[in-house]
Amino acid sequence: MPWSAKVTSIRPSQSPVMKGRGATFDPPNRFAPTCSVAEPDGWWQAETPSSLATEVREEPTKSALSWNASPDLSFDRSLNPYRGCEHGCIYCFARPSHAYWDLSPGLDFETRLIARTGMVERLEEELAHPRYVCRPINLSGNTDCYQPIEAHYRTTRRLLELLHACRHPVTLVTKGTLVLRDIELLASMAEHRLVRVFVSLTSLDANLKRTLEPRAASPQARLKVIRELNTAGIPVGVLFSPVIPGLTDHEIERLLEAASRAGARTATWMLLRLPREVAPLFEAWLHTHHPARAAKVMSLLRQCRGGKTNEPAFGRRFRGEGVFADLIDQRFRRASRQWGLQPRAEQGLDTRYFRPPRAQQDLFD
């Protein structure tokens, strides 16, 4: 059954810190017709719990592939097995999308997840369509396909098995260690130039990670993922995303060195994005966990965003503009050259041997 719309909100300054969660409050759903605010007026109110359990709702999949025409992206189609993400990264650009399911982009995004069922069957139908043209699929374009609930649902695993059987190329982006569960399957795909994996690294500081990305893998665990994927012959790159001015940009050189030593072949970066509700969530997080740096971080970000906290325009939304953004890019390029990291994959993925699912079934008809 669908969740009802959430119309109660609390102010950031009153928000308790939930154990193992990134957001410090639930901003109201922008599509809800009403919104209420809790006030400490002396009347009895239920005590706020110190932690929140994860809830999962299943949703039948109507279509598997999501399409985009963005000139900033290297792919035009993606697969998203889950809505919401338990990793709880406070900066996640996908948080505002949770409002479309009558949920808050705050704590709801991390605790009230949606698992899409029947996705493999829908993808099989779409790949078998006579007008389908094979190009690399990205897994996932929105939330992490290897977040903790994947251990139960195994949707990502079954999608990869289908793509492998069809000889369809795929790129993966994750900050979870569960990807190592599928290392043999990914290694087999790599032999046919069908897969490339990007590990997202934001910081090497484990203490910072605990509040910035509370339920994602530790920095050392992610470096281990890079090392084991590389050892297995799977092309792996590092995605330094997001670069947070005044908070993580000083790690550029150390992070790229660590990624290179672990076996990463490529590297790219993206500047912090704060669309819609992400801006107040991130600012509240800053004032809660890094109050002394909050003003500096937001000032530097505005310098990179033309005086705003966010710039959605193509060509500028990922890298920003201005002196500080240019400095980040120069440092990143120089460190990448120093450690032998390419700005893009040294070889493309192979689409020549794609076999539509129906063609395989016809062999037995």
Rank of each mutant, 00 (worst) to 15 (best):
L160I: 12
R305L: 08
G84L: 10
K224H: 12
L73E: 10
I244K: 07
C145D: 04
E213G: 11
W3V: 13
R157K: 14
Q360T: 11
E110R: 07
F364N: 07
L274G: 01
L300T: 05
P136M: 04
P81N: 06
E161L: 13
T309F: 14
P275F: 03
V120K: 01
F25M: 03
F332P: 02
T156E: 05
R355P: 00
H152D: 13
T177M: 11
A313N: 11
R261M: 10
R181Y: 06
D102H: 15
E253P: 00
W67Q: 11
T155F: 01
V173A: 08
T268L: 04
E125Y: 06
T61I: 08
H152K: 15
A187H: 02
T34Y: 15
D350Y: 05
R344C: 09
P2Y: 04
A345S: 14
G176I: 04
R334T: 14
T111E: 08
A262M: 03
G106Q: 04
D249M: 02
R358L: 11
I137F: 08
A221R: 14
A345C: 10
I137T: 05
A190V: 06
L127M: 03
L349C: 10
Y82S: 05
R181I: 01
D249P: 06
I328Q: 03
I149Y: 06
K308L: 08
S13D: 09
D102T: 12
M270S: 13
I149F: 06
S36Q: 11
D182L: 01
V197S: 07
A128K: 00
Y146W: 09
R57Y: 04
W285A: 06
R337S: 10
A165N: 06
L180V: 03
E311I: 06
T143S: 15
C92K: 11
E121K: 14
V278G: 02
R273G: 04
T24R: 13
T61E: 07
L185K: 08
L172Y: 03
S299R: 14
S50N: 12
A115W: 13
S200F: 03
E58P: 01
Y146Q: 08
E150C: 04
T351R: 11
